[in-house]
Amino acid sequence: MIAVIGLVVGMIAGLALQPEVPAFLAPYLPIAVIAALDALMGGLRAKLDGMFDDKVFLVSFLSNTVIAAFIVFLGDQLGVGSQMSTGVVVVLGIRIFSNSAAIRRHLFKA
């Protein structure tokens, strides 16, 4: 619960402060957002499965985001940045879809 409250507090702070993002981080923002969405879906599904855990949620959230951004960074350095981005989006997209399917089964029993 504390993690969710923390997230909400952080989001409100982000909306209120609107700090500048350094330009060199800009290419990784979309990937980071998708990775965060994946972790959120995973956390929601775990909650509905009855085995949510703050620590696991945060660690998966953090590592997903950082690793996704790192993969894209590596791709940029190797000259295959856009392909790497596509790969990351496909993998995370599949996970988001199957997690949301599980959530849907929990909520609507269908």
């Binding site: 409250i5 982000g14 979309p30």
Partner: peptide, 24 residues
């Protein structure tokens, strides 16, 4: 301390993701 850390990390992540989305 675990609770506090969890709260702080969660707040940081929420901040970063929101800023990312707003910037995009």
């Amino acid at each position: 301390w675990v609770t506090v850390t969890v709260f702080l990390v969660a707040a940081a992540i929420g901040l970063v993701v929101t800023v990312a989305a707003v910037t995009l």
